[in-house]
Amino acid sequence: MQPPQLSDRSPTSTGAATTLVAARHEPDRATDAVPALAVHDLTVAYRDRPAVWDVDLVLPAGHLIGVVGPNGAGKSTFIKAVVDVIPRVAGRVEVFGGPYRQNRRRVGYVPQRTSVDWDFPTTALDVVTMGTYGRLGWLRRVGRREKDEARTCLERVGLAELAGRQISELSGGQQQRVFLARALAQQADLYLMDEPFAGVDAVTEKSIVELLRDLRAAGKTVVCVHHDLETAPEYFDWVVMLNVGVIASGPMAEAFTVDNLRATYGGVVSAALRHADREKAAIAESLSAAPPAG
């Protein structure tokens, strides 16, 4: 729950390397308890091209965790491989100390909004109710209890009055909140979200951030694939930098360094620097403006 701070952001010769080593081999103090998510040697490939290569990660419980990296870095692939949506070539995934398949009911998943056809003939409430299906299991039918739970979740994202609305009639931001409500209906302890801020308006973005903070305050762990480096330090307290492999993982204040950004967004050096500079400026600005809520 520490606010993001600018630590030593000057490039040092060992910055990226030590963070990498720390992420891989030294358990963080916060992980003394069972980590929310532990990934070992995860490799995923599309045909012959590896999208995620040999990822080792231990993510502590109770944090808001941002996964950043350039396009095609395997961020979504990583999330999908964790929740069994795409097959792994190698590797193990543990959720709260047990295999994903055993503990999947403690995991809530928010896919990318654009991954489904919103012309599907159903209502917002019905989509949210799908969050209870995992608990119900095969063949058991949705009852009043599930509907009531779903209604409560819709209320929490501020869409109670749109429960009966056909989903194609919702705005992009409302659709995203329906997906979040569906994940809430899963009553999970670990939430994995694939770009929950993609294509939503500023008001929705703010309300989603508040929701995520509420979840953290309730002791939940949230892992978000995030595209916007400018807002990452404000929204998250832990960062994972991914580019096929893990470049860095740690508390925002320690891991969000120019060196790490350069290593993650490397290749096109100028682009990496532009990202980093913009980032630095933004953070400096946000710090001078007001201390972020923590």
């Binding site: 929740v83 998943y109 989509v127 799908m130 039918r141």
Partner: peptide
């Protein structure tokens, strides 16, 4: 229930174990 879920959102269905 299962057919509806897998038709609307196969990825989510898979994550739930269907």
């Amino acid at each position: 229930k299962e057919l509806k879920l897998v038709t609307f959102d196969p990825g989510f269905a898979e994550s739930l174990g269907f």
